[in-house]
Write a protein that binds this DNA or RNA. Structure first.
Lengths: 146, 146
DNA sequence: CTTAGTGCAAAACCTTTGCAACTCT
DNA sequence: AGAGTTGCAAAGGTTTTGCACTAAG
């Protein structure tokens, strides 16, 4: 279910943006690292061996762009840098994040129970909700053993 | 239900920390600005007129300390700086944040429906959950009118 | 050929840290 | 007195920006 090159190109041109090798490579980095939450620096490290002179600025600009195009999700786990994950298009139900306070690992959790809560809250608060983010902090199984 | 000076002093001394005028003033800033989510710079601006030579470093160190003592909650609304809110001690049920994507305003929302979701997720995922954070992004009533 | 994108280095931010002077307890 | 705190300035880390050059449509 990965996004195809044609789809990427189309999304970009809708935005008056061009398909460059750098952008392709950066998106590919996420496809090659599923379930990970890459920072700009992570992405830069992954991509540098393939294009040694790619600049950090390009990475930042591309991450911003792909987030605007909803191909990536920008998120924050409180470690002082933004992290990104690929936006799966079959996202009929959403996923949340379980963050281990000891080792920092981030685990994904699938769920659709939040939907009803969201509509209830939207109604009560007079807010038009378009997105949400739910994070749980705690201790993972491995860390608890120690 | 505000925290008293004696309570603050006690909490501090439990932590081998001292009660200084700076710390008092910073906590007071939050008591004077309920329902707001102040950044370090906000706090510095509030406090500077009262103690012109208070340094930013002290503000940062105090915010960190008060968060450790659970008197403040540190949070992130994606605007590139940490924000803090006072931790009410009658927090039997939790509150979430509705963030307007247009004007940036943050509205609080009381709720306890998440409790059951949390225990369900903890069980399924084998994670010991100690805290959570739920944010909704959307458009507030005022911005929708425009 | 026109418009957009890139790399580089500098700058802009927010936050942390080292240190000498100071102040609570 | 002694441990902890402060202010300052410098340093750290992440992200943004200006600009000349290059490449995509």
């Amino acid at each position: 279910m990965s996004i195809t090159l044609a789809e990427l190109k189309q999304k970009l041109s809708q935005n008056h943006s061009k398909l460059t090798p750098q952008r392709q490579m950066i998106l590919q980095a996420f496809l090659n690292h599923p379930e990970e939450h890459l920072s700009a620096e992570d992405v830069h490290q992954i991509v540098k061996p393939l294009a040694s002179d790619i600049g950090v600025a390009t990475v930042y600009r591309t991450l911003e762009l792909l987030s605007e195009l909803k191909l990536l999700n920008k998120m924050d786990f409180g470690d002082g840098r933004s992290r990104y994950e690929i936006q799966k298009n079959d996202e009929s139900h959403c996923h949340h994040h379980l963050i281990c306070l000891s080792c920092g690992k981030v685990k994904e959790f699938e769920d659709d129970l939040l939907e009803s809560l969201e509509t209830a809250i939207a109604k009560k608060s007079n807010f038009t909700i378009v997105d949400h983010q739910l994070k749980f902090y705690g201790y993972c199984q491995e860390c608890r053993k120690q």
